[in-house]
Each structure stands twice: as C-alpha cells, then as structure tokens.
Simulated scan of single mutants.
Amino acid sequence: MPEDEAWPTPVPAPAPAPAEDSVDAGFARDMAVHHQQAVELSFIVRDRTDDADVRRLAYDIINTQANQRGMLLGRLDAWDLPTISEEPPMAWMDHAMSHEPHDGSLMPGMATNTELDRLRRAEGEAAEVRYLQLMTAHHQGGVHMAEAAANQAEDPTIARLAEGMVSGQQSEIDLMADMLTERGAEPLP
C-alpha cells in the first residue's frame, strides 16, 4: 500500500443484543407503554382546554414522548426482541418499585381507567388541574424507571436516553408544580 493511502478505519462489531429479560429490554418495553399513556393524556387535555400554556406543554409531551417511544421500540426491533413480554411490568426493577396493576394502571404513576374517564369529562381549568396532577404523578413514576435504567442499562444508547428522560421529565415536573400553584391546586398525594 502506498504511503499516502491510509488504512481503512475498522468498524467495531455491533454489541450483542441484550437478553429478553435484561434491564435494557425491560426498560424499553415498559417505558414505551408508559410513554404511550402520557401521549394519550396530553391529547385528551389538548381538546379540553384553551389555555395556551397547558396546550403547549401537552404538545411538547406528545412530541417528545412519541419520539422517545419510537426510539425504544426501534431498539427492541434492532435487537430482534418482542415488544411485549410475558413478565409482569417492571420485573427488571427492584421489588421496591413493583406495582400491582389495577383499573388499567400497569406501572407506578400511570393513570387508572377511572382517572382517564374523569379527565375526558373535565373542561377548562378543571381539565388543566386534573391533567397537571395526573401528568406529575406519571412523570414521577417515569423518572424512577428512567433512573434505574440509566444506572443499570448496559446499552449506552438506552442509558443516555434514560438519562435524558430523567432530566426532561424532572424539568416538566417543576414546571407543572408552578402551573398547579397558579391554579390554586397541588400535585396528587
């Protein structure tokens, strides 16, 4: 090979796919489900209020979480792993975070079917307050899941995505606390 020609840079072999019951796969599956409900909540409130700030927050959550959901499902597809597991939700996490599904709520922070119905029936400021309360609880549950994945995931893409979720959702929790205060309300206990 002539001196002026460089050797091609070797391309690293792709990392092996994680196991189906790994933190990486479990987080990707569970957070995709969790994000889907955040998108649903945000679409509901978008149609129940004219408040520009709440609608802007809902729009941001719809776009951010739908995009992240796509990335999570894309990782599962790239790993050739199923998007649905026979394991209960959050089996990849410590038992301290376990959650018994009830009334449609599959994981901590997720709204129940009854809470979703109440939001669908609310109008104006009542819908705004209910949404902000439900989304705060939803994000708190999501932050706990993302913190666990950021600390335990082996795939660097999943770890970085989880770290970004922690930061973004904590920022939105702070914003929603201010929005609730403006409306004379507090987060759910």
Rank of each mutant, 00 (worst) to 15 (best):
P10Y: 12
P10E: 15
V11S: 15
V11E: 15
V11Q: 15
P12I: 12
P12H: 13
P12F: 12
P12M: 13
P14T: 10
A15S: 15
A15C: 11
P16K: 10
A17S: 15
A17W: 10
A17M: 11
P18L: 06
E20H: 08
D21N: 10
S22H: 07
S22V: 08
V23F: 11
D24N: 05
A25S: 09
F27H: 06
A28D: 13
D30G: 00
M31I: 08
A32H: 02
A32M: 03
H35R: 05
Q36K: 14
Q37W: 01
A38Y: 02
L41E: 09
S42T: 02
I44A: 07
R46A: 12
R46P: 03
R46T: 15
D47A: 10
D50Y: 01
D51K: 07
D53M: 05
V54S: 04
R56I: 01
L57D: 04
Y59M: 11
Y59T: 13
D60P: 05
D60R: 15
D60Y: 07
I62Y: 04
Q65S: 06
Q65F: 05
Q65M: 04
N67R: 10
N67E: 03
N67A: 10
N67M: 07
Q68C: 09
Q68E: 15
Q68Y: 08
R69K: 12
R69P: 03
G70V: 04
M71C: 04
L72S: 05
L72A: 08
L72K: 05
L76T: 14
L76N: 14
D77C: 06
D77V: 12
A78R: 14
A78N: 13
T83F: 08
T83V: 13
S85I: 04
E87F: 03
E87K: 09
E87V: 01
E87H: 08
P88M: 04
M93C: 05
M93R: 05
H95F: 07
A96L: 07
M97Y: 13
M97P: 01
S98C: 00
S98Y: 02
H102D: 14
G104H: 11
L106Q: 09
G109A: 06
G109N: 03
G109I: 02
M110V: 01
A111F: 03
T112F: 00
T114W: 02
E115F: 01
E115I: 01
L116K: 11
L116D: 10
L116N: 09
D117W: 05
D117T: 13
D117G: 10
D117E: 14
L119H: 01
R121Y: 07
R121E: 15
E123I: 09
